[in-house]
C-alpha cells in the first residue's frame, strides 16, 4: 500500500478525474472520441427530440380531443414537425454545448464538446455548431476518415469531442474557465 507521503510525492497516484471512472476506461479519458460513440450520442439526442416532439404533438391532439369533442384529428404535417424538431434540436444542442459541453446523448455515451484549448465552447460557436450539425448531419462522417477524429463541424469551428466519463466538471486541460 502506498503511504500518504509517497502518494503526496506522486508515487502510485492517479489523476483526480479517474475516481468516478471504471479502471478500464481511465486510460483513454480526454482523448478524441471516435465516430461510433459520437454517432450513437447524436442518435440518442435526435431520438429524444423526436420523442419530445411526438409527445408535444400528442399532447396537442389530446387537448383538442378533450376540449373540442367530435372534431376530427388531423395528424401534423411532417414538414412542420421536422422544422420544429430542427429548431428545438439546434436550441437544445446550443445550450448543452455552451454550458456543460454535453447533451443527454453525449452524457450517456461519455463524450464532451470542448474548444481546441480544452475549454468550454462559447455561445456563438455552440450555436453555429448546433445549426451546422442539424443542417449537415452527414458532416459527422468525416470523423471516420479524419486523422484526429474530427467531423466537418469540428474542422470548421475548431471544436473537439473528447471521451469524458467524469461526472464532475468538464475534463478540460489548461482551462481558465471550467464549467
Amino acid at each position: 500500500m502506498t503511504t500518504f507521503s509517497e502518494w503526496q510525492r506522486g508515487d502510485g497516484r492517479e489523476s483526480a478525474e479517474d475516481y468516478s471512472i471504471p479502471e478500464d476506461a481511465r486510460e483513454f479519458q480526454g482523448e478524441r472520441a471516435g465516430f461510433a460513440t459520437r454517432f450513437l450520442a447524436s442518435v440518442i439526442d435526435v431520438a429524444l427530440v423526436a420523442l419530445l416532439m411526438m409527445s408535444i404533438w400528442l399532447g396537442i391532439e389530446i387537448l383538442q380531443l378533450i376540449f373540442t369533442p367530435g372534431v376530427e384529428v388531423h395528424p401534423p404535417r411532417a414538414a412542420t414537425l421536422v422544422l420544429w424538431g430542427y429548431l428545438f434540436t439546434t436550441f437544445y444542442w446550443t445550450v448543452a454545448w455552451a454550458t456543460s459541453g454535453r447533451s443527454l446523448g453525449a452524457r450517456f455515451m461519455g463524450v464532451r464538446v470542448v474548444s481546441r484549448k480544452g475549454e468550454r465552447v462559447h455561445w456563438p460557436v455552440a450555436l453555429a455548431r448546433a445549426a451546422f450539425s442539424v443542417g449537415f448531419p452527414i458532416g459527422l462522417a468525416w470523423a471516420l476518415i479524419s486523422k484526429r477524429n474530427r467531423s466537418v463541424q469540428d474542422v470548421v469551428l475548431r471544436t473537439i469531442v473528447i471521451y469524458d466519463w467524469s461526472l464532475r466538471a468538464p475534463l478540460v486541460i489548461g482551462s481558465k474557465h471550467p464549467t
Binding site: 478524441r32 460513440t37 480544452g118 471516420l144 486541460i173 482551462s175
Partner: peptide
C-alpha cells in the same frame, strides 16, 4: 471506435490516429 478507425486507417492507408488531448 477503435476498430472502425483501424479499418479506415488500414484502407487509406496510414499509421494510426493522433488522438491527443485538447490543449
Amino acid at each position: 471506435d477503435i476498430a472502425t478507425a483501424r479499418i479506415v486507417d488500414r484502407l487509406l492507408p496510414r499509421r494510426g490516429r493522433k488522438l491527443d488531448a485538447p490543449g
